[in-house]
Design a protein around this nucleic acid. Structure first.
Lengths: 240, 240
DNA sequence: CGGTGGATTGAGAGCCGTCAACGGAGGTGG
DNA sequence: CCACCTCCGTTGACGGCTCTCAATCCACCG
């Protein structure tokens, strides 16, 4: 009977959720069929183009979003306009700061992005009832904290060459999470300006360091946005 | 009858916990008398002197600790020895990365520190049973993530003068969480070397910037470690 | 074909790191 | 009580890395 009941539950999974990455590795994996069905009635899928603002800094948070495709950049700006990228989010991350009245970052689509938008009350009431859901949200927060602290080392203690190598290595690892012994080819989800804001450098310095990596044969540049790394281990060494 | 029951519960609060800050603002505030009593049988209070290592990077985590007094610094090092402070923890923060096999930072006593050490199994089993406890742990993780991202802006986009001003302002705010309109006097919990590692600078640059703030009348230096700020708003402006 | 926005490359300046010398506080021993 | 040592912090001189400003290139598009 249990297996039959499980099959029934599976058939309850909303059509849109059935092939959704968030249901496997994302936060929706913590929900049973019934909860998923209820939640899916409140959500909607949207597409956002590069550069579109998803969440504004210091504004009330009305909704959270599962990132289903593309890359979202989280930024902060100083009063005089200096900007810093403080995080990148990939599928199936949850976008939005839980348990805060206002956002503390600006979230912007870095590439074309597909989102599953969850109204704030829907997610917060579900989190109150579902400890597994809250647990998944916490695990993501802890992972983001680890990543932020890793990046603080890069920002504070690495020189420009090491910073750019670290960025490329991080992107390659995210796109292609295989081991370090093979080659890798990928599209950069960020413009030179975004990369500079991520690394605490200027556009010109980023460009010079990328040119140097190309001249040294560490990377090959197909397009401005398309890069191949013949030897990931060699790039890894340059990260400092 | 309810009030009587409550009194009974209060009397169950372990003696050591009764005046403990962690029971009010820290994670123990999520526990009832019974849970607190059970937990207190597994914990022990210890004192650590400045410079003592509390948790080693890449080592298994055997225990968590409530910070009861003093300041703990979290650091990461590159292979060639370059060091970055990635976080500071004050009372009543919980020390230790939950739900990870190994620590990803080194934790070291920056000042004299009092800890309430909680064995790992004790806290993890309690978290499994108590959603409010897990919720508090998550709230701390989210707060630390906010702080880490704030600091990334300082590391990536501020010059040396703004970095040092930001550090002093952050310490003043932590020690003296009043509004910005008044004066503030406090002891620096970190040496010049630690401050440099926190700001991604050298000892010499930190020293020069502190001397400049003194020459400009923004701060007064009583001791190497003891500083007064006559006008916090003026310091705030210098943070960029 | 010219216009536009992003990326690259070059020249010069300025900020901060490096190296070095000096100073002051605290501890120890004669 | 003083001499001495050590550790930490300060100050100075100099050089290099990265920023700034500017020109140019390239891809894309009307």
């Amino acid at each position: 009977m249990q297996t039959v009941r499980k099959d029934i539950h599976n058939s309850e999974v909303p059509v849109l959720c059935q092939s959704c990455e968030a249901r496997h590795q994302g936060i929706c994996g913590a929900l049973n069929g019934e909860q998923l069905l209820a939640l899916s009635k409140a959500t909607r899928r949207v597409r956002r183009e590069p550069g579109e603002e998803l969440i504004a800094d210091a504004m009330p948070i009305n909704a959270f979003s599962n990132v289903l495709r593309g890359v979202v950049k989280l930024t902060k700006v100083l009063e005089d306009g200096r900007q810093q990228v403080v995080g990148l989010q990939f599928a199936p991350d949850l976008l939005g700061r839980p348990f805060a009245a206002e956002s503390r970052v600006t979230a912007e689509a870095a590439s074309a992005v597909d989102l599953c938008v969850i109204p704030r009350p829907a997610l917060e009431s579900l989190m109150k009832d579902s400890a597994p859901l809250e647990h998944r949200v916490m695990m993501q927060a802890l992972r983001e904290l680890d990543e932020a602290r890793d990046w603080m080392v890069t920002l504070g203690r690495k020189n420009a060459a090491e910073k750019v190598a670290s960025f490329l290595f991080m992107i390659a690892s995210h796109i292609d999470p295989t081991d370090e012994t093979v080659a890798s080819k990928f599209d950069l989800p960020l413009s030179r300006a975004d990369i500079a804001d991520f690394l605490g450098l200027t556009i010109e310095t980023v460009s010079r360091q990328i040119s140097k990596l190309k001249a040294d044969g560490v990377i090959e540049i197909v397009n401005y946005r398309h890069i191949t790394v013949p030897d990931l281990a060699r790039l890894r060494v340059l990260c400092g």
